[in-house]
Design a protein around this nucleic acid. Structure first.
Lengths: 129, 129
DNA sequence: GACAAAGTATCATAGTATGATACACTGCGA
DNA sequence: TCGCAGTGTATCATACTATGATACTTTGTC
């Protein structure tokens, strides 16, 4: 369900946050769902439990998860309020997207394949099955 | 032309590499084009010249740029051969794309807006004006 | 030759990601 | 009521590495 890359320049806990936010955005995780215990997820991914705990904490801090000692971690909300200024945010989004698409082209995917990938993900995000 | 974010989790030199590869992929930079001197680009972006130099060197190492002391840095090739195994690479591409799209949704863009952004970038990448 | 402009090398520093380990809270069953 | 297993949390050490200040080397031009 969650995958990370050990040789990405992006720190592990950031990758985790990204992944979980993605699962929240596309509806895979719903309010009330339990997340795996830090030890289990850490073990599954082959990383340290602190790294997972850190990701959980960051998401807790921005109100998406609720964690409590001894009980576990659950989804509190799937909606997040953005803090960035719209202008910067828009640029950031565009840059990220453009990079991802360019990367796909560099990897040898042709236009049709990329369009298919995008379409599939958009459908998932907007709940079309 | 090149933009980076100082508070991204992605290291500056990696962002630079990403950006330049994007410019190579979409045709903004062509074979033979000169890149800005490290000092100038560093100054424009408000970062250290070593960081720029590092990005140039990485791109030189994989055969995309040619640098020589005293003369500068030029585009040597716009085609890169991938080194990853196809399976892993495909997953990486998908993950990156999915993240970027989810991020866009989280930021409040609606489906149409995202589709437009994607279309525009694809057109740029495949040379449609 | 002198000089300006390009990339390169060296070194220091601070930040931080990661991990090993021990702690504290919760709930359940004997 | 006690213990125990299963949670997340806190602490600390370590190693890495991104970044930057500075000095060096090469190239071309006047």
């Amino acid at each position: 369900m969650i995958t990370i890359s050990l040789n990405s320049p992006i720190p592990l806990h950031d990758q985790l946050v990204q992944e979980i936010r993605r699962l929240l955005a596309d509806g895979t995780l719903k309010v009330g769902d339990e997340l795996p215990p830090v030890r289990q997820l850490a073990n599954d991914l082959g990383i340290n439990l602190n790294t997972v705990a850190r990701a959980y904490r960051e998401l807790t801090d921005c109100g998406l998860l609720a964690t409590s000692r001894g009980r576990g971690t659950v989804v509190l909300s799937t909606i997040e309020k953005t803090t960035e200024k719209p202008a910067e945010e828009k640029k950031r989004i565009e840059t990220t997207l453009s990079s991802a698409l360019a990367d796909a082209k560099i990897a040898g995917l042709n236009r049709k394949e990329i369009e298919l990938l995008v379409l599939r993900q958009l459908n998932k995000l907007w709940g079309v099955s």
